[in-house]
Simulated scan of single mutants.
Amino acid sequence: MNDPQASLRLTAPAAARNAAPILDVLRTALPVRGTVLEIASGTGQHAVHFAAALPGIDWQPSDADPRARASIAAWRDHAGLANLRAPLDLDVRREPWPVDAAIGSLAAIVCINMIHISPWEATIALMKGAGARVAPGGALVLYGPYRRNGAHTAPSNEAFDADLRARDPAWGVRDLEAVEALARAEGFVLEAVVPMPANNFTVVFRKEKAAASAH
């Protein structure tokens, strides 16, 4: 049978390869139920994979790129998952985020492969937005390559960093310590840094809970 939406469903080989390892971390980092906002959802392959595997989660994909949103919508229609929402047009640097009125506080935010392929201002905005929207005890989960202690973790990452900066000087593999500092300023503590295939990491931050009253 001819599928009119097949041409809209973009595919990324990396998304197919890393979905299972990332899901393993998400099973531990995310609550059983709640709304999770995925930022920079890309093709939509991850959104379908995670929503299918985590039926108690209300998965909200988003992307600033209209072509990506069309792909996410096509993957969503193809999968027919009740807990996968339609994609939002969301650029972290543009306030207010469109998720605010519809959802309110979030159980978690997941952001895969955005920080190194965007200006540093986008990471700052991501952290500020997450700090304002993730509920206490909730998670901020990031995935991608990072420098650690001022150095690349593999020669391939160093070459990738050079390629990114050649394409756009504002891009590049970030120092995990700098990312952690931004997160900490917005009320998150670093919970886990999990090595992933292809010299990437899944990084889990946890939103601090308010201190108990002294009364």
Rank of each mutant, 00 (worst) to 15 (best):
Val92Cys: 01
Ala6Met: 09
Leu81Tyr: 01
Ala183Trp: 11
Val134Ile: 14
Leu37Pro: 00
Lys128His: 14
Pro145Cys: 10
Ala64Pro: 02
Ala214Pro: 06
Asn200Arg: 00
Gly42Val: 01
Val179Glu: 11
Ala154Glu: 11
Gly187Pro: 07
Glu180Tyr: 08
Leu8Gly: 05
Ala166Lys: 15
Leu88Met: 09
Asp77Met: 04
Thr35Ala: 12
Ala6Tyr: 06
His215Val: 02
Arg85Ser: 08
Glu95His: 09
Trp59Tyr: 12
Ala40Gly: 12
Pro4Thr: 05
His78Cys: 06
Pro31Lys: 03
Val134His: 01
Ser156Gly: 12
Ala52Phe: 06
Asp91Ala: 04
Ser71His: 06
Ala162Tyr: 12
Leu54Ser: 02
Asp89Met: 02
Trp59Ala: 02
Phe205His: 11
Asn199Phe: 14
Ala162Cys: 10
Ser105Thr: 10
Pro96Gly: 01
Leu142Phe: 12
Arg206Trp: 14
Ala16Cys: 10
Arg93Ala: 11
Gly187Leu: 07
Ala178Lys: 14
Gly138Arg: 07
Asp100Lys: 01
Asp63Tyr: 03
Asp58Leu: 05
Asp100Ser: 00
Arg27Lys: 15
Leu37Asn: 02
Ala211Gln: 15
Tyr143His: 08
Asn2Pro: 15
Ser118Tyr: 13
Ala151Lys: 14
Ala6Gly: 01
Leu30Val: 10
Asp65Lys: 01
Pro136Asp: 13
Pro87His: 00
Thr11Leu: 12
Lys207Asp: 11
Arg94Lys: 13
Ala210Arg: 15
Asp24Leu: 09
Asn113Ala: 06
Ala178Thr: 03
Thr153Leu: 08
Ala19Ser: 11
Leu26Ser: 06
Ala170Gly: 14
Pro98Val: 04
Asn113Thr: 07
Cys111Asn: 12
Asp63Gln: 01
Pro96Glu: 09
Asp63Ser: 04
Ala151Cys: 11
Val134Gly: 01
His49Arg: 10
Met196Val: 09
Ile117Asn: 10
Ala52Gly: 09
Ala12Lys: 08
Ser41Thr: 06
Lys209Trp: 13
Glu38Gly: 07
Pro98Asn: 08
Arg76Ser: 11
Ala82Pro: 03
Pro155Asn: 09
Thr43Val: 02
Trp59Ile: 00
Thr28Pro: 04
Ser156Tyr: 10
Val110Asn: 07
Trp120Thr: 01
Ala15Trp: 00
Pro155Gly: 10
Ala125Ser: 14
Arg94Asp: 05
Val134Leu: 05
Ala151Asp: 15
Trp120His: 05
Leu37Arg: 01
Leu81His: 00
Arg133His: 15
Val204Leu: 09
Ala125Gln: 09
Asp24Thr: 13
Asn113Gly: 07
Leu106Asn: 04
Ala70Phe: 02
Pro98Cys: 08
Leu190Phe: 12
Phe50Thr: 05
Pro13Thr: 06
Leu142Glu: 09
Val203Thr: 03
Phe205Val: 08
Gly56Phe: 11
Ala40Asn: 05
Glu191Thr: 10
Ala79Arg: 03
Ala132Met: 09
Leu90Asn: 02
Ala101Glu: 14
Gln5Gly: 08
Ile22Ala: 03
Asn200Leu: 08
Ala64His: 04
Ala108Asp: 11
Glu177His: 13
Ser213His: 15
Val189Met: 12
Leu30Arg: 08
Pro195Val: 00
Arg133Leu: 11
Glu180Met: 07
Ala135Gly: 07
His49Tyr: 14
